[in-house]
Amino acid sequence: MLAPIGLLWKPIGMTANSMSAADDPRRLLSELRTLARRVRLEQRMTWVALLVLAAVTFAAIPVDWFAMQVRCHPDGSCEFARQGMLYYWPPATLLAYGAIAFLYLRAARSRGLGTRVLPYAITGAVTTVVFPAAWLAVRLYFQSHPYPDGPLPYWYFVLDRLVMPWGMIGVTLLLLAWLERSPGLLLFTSGYLALVLLVLPMGDGFGAPHFGVRAGMAVPQAIAGLVLLLGAAGFRAVQRRHR
């Protein structure tokens, strides 16, 4: 027979399988749910994923800054090309998701647990392909089609930001929230996605007169990195309190 003490399971002999009290099934189910939740909490390394992604985001800023080609015209308008992003992000995201998967597995293993991190690593790899593929597709499309005269619709900007590396980071974080069944991460990711898709000008940067072209591009990236970093610190603090 087993006598539950709080959330733990204290064995008293181990032979009988009694279920005498009418409320036992409910208590049993409740204990199983608690046990499952505890295992899930011990597997979580959300802060590590956020920290790695913040590091990759911050490291992209100088790459973008120095690799950007800017050509300004006498009328004050400027043209720019962010080729560096295309060369930086695919290998950087592959390395980042590989590192996250490795750190998750190592931490879980040291606690005596396995973990379901493979779907996350696969999604990371897929998004690595999606970003340059989308970039190339848009480039090829506008080579044979003229830019529309009127202002582009708002959804175009949202879609453009979604296939950018910062939007892809949000998509993989959504998957991580689902894998970890973490409402906290879901909430955080929703806020992050709203920021990088709807608020920050990730594609065009903040413009004149307050910022130059390079600084205007760097600031939204720094904000996105800072949000990821703050998220990592927050999830780390919550995890420490739970253990």
Binding site: R38, R40, Q43, T115, R116
Partner: peptide
């Protein structure tokens, strides 16, 4: 109860070490 506990933990973790089960 114990066997249900074992199945629940292994279901969540995919793979579990003996010592972890013993502690939990």
């Amino acid at each position: 109860r114990v066997r249900l506990g074992i199945l629940t933990i292994t279901h969540e973790a995919r793979r579990v070490e003996f010592g972890y089960l013993r502690t939990q």
